[in-house]
């Protein structure tokens, strides 16, 4: 009797040490730090949950009707792609050099190819997988003849089924993408 109890205990210890979980095996339970140090501090980190604010978010929205420093969008040309009379600009209101186009190409690759495809023919991954065709930036004359300002406006605010990309693409990158899309229709890479 005594003997078997001891054996069972030995087995339990062996199981704990060797059978339980080796390094690297997966678990859905949050990590337990045997030595907690100050690993978890009662402070707010980015995108964390808050028990204090009514909306449950640590990160606060700007107060309504306020603008953060440097984020006032009051230049119709650069922020909306429009002239002062409201018509769309024919050209990009900033210097476009090879660097800008290269930046645009890279950003196009990240944000636009899933739908419009690497060639801009409107047949990206969305078409391959779901047979939903997006705007053909190269072959469709309606799109190909858009003034730069309107192209920028569509990127910024969306159009039809396309959502606006004001977030996550910053202002200058949206113009860079506009520049790149215009080189696409002139037959590919700059």
């Amino acid at each position: 009797m005594m003997h078997s109890t001891r054996r069972l205990m030995a087995l339990a210890v062996m199981l704990m040490v060797f059978g339980g979980c080796m390094r690297g095996c997966t678990s859905p339970r949050p990590p337990i730090h045997p030595n907690p140090n100050m690993d978890l501090q009662p402070k707010y980190k980015a995108q964390a949950e808050s028990a204090f604010f009514y909306d449950g978010m640590t990160m606060r929205q700007p107060v309504e009707h306020t603008v953060a420093r440097g984020e006032l969008e009051r230049d119709p040309a650069i922020h909306e792609g429009r002239a002062t009379d409201g018509t769309f600009l024919a050209d990009i209101p900033m210097t476009v050099d090879a660097e800008v186009v290269a930046r645009g190409a890279e950003r196009y690759g990240i944000y636009c190819t899933p739908c419009h495809g690497a060639k801009g023919d409107g047949r990206g991954m969305l078409y391959e997988r779901a047979q939903i065709e997006s705007g053909d930036l190269v072959g469709d004359p309606r799109i190909a003849n858009l003034p730069a300002g309107e192209l920028f406006d569509v990127i910024t605010n969306g159009k039809g089924l396309m959502q606006g990309y004001r977030y996550p693409v910053p202002l200058k990158d949206r113009w860079a993408i506009t520049a790149y899309v215009r080189t696409l229709r002139q037959g590919g890479a700059p």
């Binding site: 040490v17 979980c21 390094r23 690297g24 095996c25 997966t26 678990s27 859905p28 339970r29 949050p30 990590p31 337990i32 730090h33 045997p34 030595n35």
Partner: peptide, 19 residues
């Protein structure tokens, strides 16, 4: 051994796969 093996983030944190 137990502290080296089980107190390390290699054991506590690697493999954390929450639902």
């Amino acid at each position: 051994f137990l502290v080296w093996y089980y107190f390390s983030p290699e054991f506590t944190d690697v493999g954390y796969q929450p639902t």
